[in-house]
Amino acid sequence: MAISTLSSPEFLDKVVDFPDGASYELVHPITDYRACHDGTPLEARILYTCKWLGSTGDQEYVMKVKVQIPGNSKTDIPKPEEGPSTTTALELKALETFRGANSAYAPQLLGFKRAVQSDSCPLPGGYLTYTLMNKIPGDTLFNLHFWGLPEDERRDIVQKFLKILRTIYELGIQPEDRGLRNIMWDRETKTCNIIDFEMWKETKQTITDETKELQRWGLARSPPQKWWETWFSEGH
């Protein structure tokens, strides 16, 4: 495995102790540490690969760390909150649903922890949350350059993706954060998974228009629009 060149915030502990007594070491950051504006309160997040310190093997897991942060205004300091954020609460609900259904097509929730930020953190007294999940094999279709893959492989991905998405809809979950960055593909085992459920809504429906759904996820090309069609579609 290549060593990550992404930086890790100095205020984060390298070992996270969970309520069940298990401890996990943060190994390599998967993403940058950056603010995310989808939920409330304002927070930053970073993902890591991690390992269980009670294991003698080399199995890796994924840890999503969320940090409540102050805004840009020096006078408008937010009140420290216990957390989790609205997006984390949504993701936890989805992951618990997948776990209850023994779903093999999405991350499995393995642990969750809330902590209070110390004086060396961005917002002392605010929350830190840690969501522990299994590591999905493969890479995202964004990183794999989906549209540069062989046509037969793209066709296989699309068919397996639709099957998985229908299964997720049947659990009452309609993902709202659609994109190639949230679809995992393992080229060795030819398996597909969907990740990141911070934004979704409950549904009793199923997929009614496969083409439009694939276009929303970036798995099918949208028909070209003339400039005035685009202009009107944007509400002008």
Rank of each mutant, 00 (worst) to 15 (best):
P19L: 01
I77T: 14
G235I: 07
L141A: 00
T49K: 01
N182S: 15
P175S: 05
A94W: 07
M63V: 11
T208C: 00
P150G: 08
G218D: 05
R221A: 12
Q174F: 10
N182G: 13
A101W: 04
S7D: 10
K66F: 10
P122K: 03
Q225C: 00
R187E: 13
P19V: 02
I173E: 06
K113R: 15
L95E: 08
W185G: 02
G83F: 06
T206A: 03
S4E: 05
D58Q: 14
D152G: 08
L109D: 09
L95Y: 13
P84E: 11
Y24H: 00
Q117T: 03
R178N: 06
T86P: 09
T140K: 05
Y127I: 01
I173M: 06
T140Q: 10
Q159I: 09
L165Q: 12
K113Y: 10
D76P: 00
D76G: 00
H37S: 11
W231Q: 04
Y61A: 07
R34G: 06
D196Q: 04
K14H: 06
V158F: 03
Y105L: 12
V67A: 05
P224C: 02
H145D: 15
S8A: 14
V67M: 03
L171Q: 14
S73R: 12
L171M: 15
D38C: 11
G111S: 09
K160Y: 00
T131V: 14
E170N: 12
I168E: 05
T191Y: 01
K74M: 08
I136C: 12
L53S: 03
M133Q: 06
L128C: 03
D32R: 06
S85P: 12
